[in-house]
Amino acid sequence: MSENASINAEQEAQWFRDTWAKLRDEIGKVIVGQDEVVEGVLVCLAANGHVLLEGMPGLGKTLLIRTLSQALDLSFSRLQFTPDMMPADVTGTNVLSEDASGKREFAFRKGPVFAHLVLADEINRATPKTQSALLEAMQERQVTVGGAHYSLPEPFLIMATQNPIEQEGTYPLPEAQMDRFFYKINVPYPTKKDLAEVVKRTTGTVTSEAGKVASGADVLRARKLIGHVKVAEDVLNYALQIVVATHPGGEAAPISEQYCRYGASPRGAQTIINASKVYALMNGRFNVSRDDVKKAAKPALRHRLLLNFEAEADGIGADQVVDGIVQFVESQGRDPVGA
């Protein structure tokens, strides 16, 4: 009997739904509002992807990942990127150490990347060299220092942040690195109501702390589970149509032709499908729907589109382009029975 057949779909799906609901609720105890951001981060966690958060300072990005680590009871580290930061400051380095017998040898001292949850704060302030130090960690889940490979712990999630303003003295992330982020989530300002709640919670005497509701093993179990979620050919085609429509010169949507220099890579399609599976499970379904794909499209593609000058001149952002693409693809489909 195969491994697949041994899974009790009903129970597993229910467990996933419950666990992720608990996680969300627990995070919600600390993070006020920002539901989409929280949900996006949880999707990335389940789908084994890294997340890039873009938003103004003070919107709770660090708090979010710290709360997540508390809820999952996982190790957490924070990297505050600065222009003078070196790769070794991220990955760790070999240092000369002396043991009790007086023998000296190089020993690897792990960097902050060796944690389950890593917050790479203001990642665009580091030099490309330092940024690139994260590439291997993100993709291969390992670090190579002095010819030796060091595996990163599982589950491993990098949550990078960047500030949309104050672009002076920053180093925009190269496309290769951007592509390695599963999601790019824009962190909006809280609403007045949410802000009031934030103020109340942080200025009083009572502070909220997240308790442990799941574990790293649960995360790994969830990652296995999403592979079983079914995707119909039609839905897969729908997702692929969206990705292909981002490619100028091909079967692109008109808006892509106008505003895109480069479209999404195959990682974009993988991301959309994986994220859709997570959404399906979160919604108690065993199959991916078009709505899941649509929901995943924007955070999965917005950082993978390289817009041209015309887009910048017209004030068109990646989100608008993705919206246009989705609309274009939707318009292609007709009622198959013609009723």
């Binding site: 057949a5 899974i7 009790n8 779909a9 079914k230 119909a232 379904r285 199959n287 078009r290």
Partner: peptide
């Protein structure tokens, strides 16, 4: 939510 299409198009034989 594409349940029927998935049921008809997917040929896997698992739970």
């Amino acid at each position: 939510k594409d349940r029927l299409v998935t049921a008809l198009q997917s040929e896997d034989d698992d739970d």
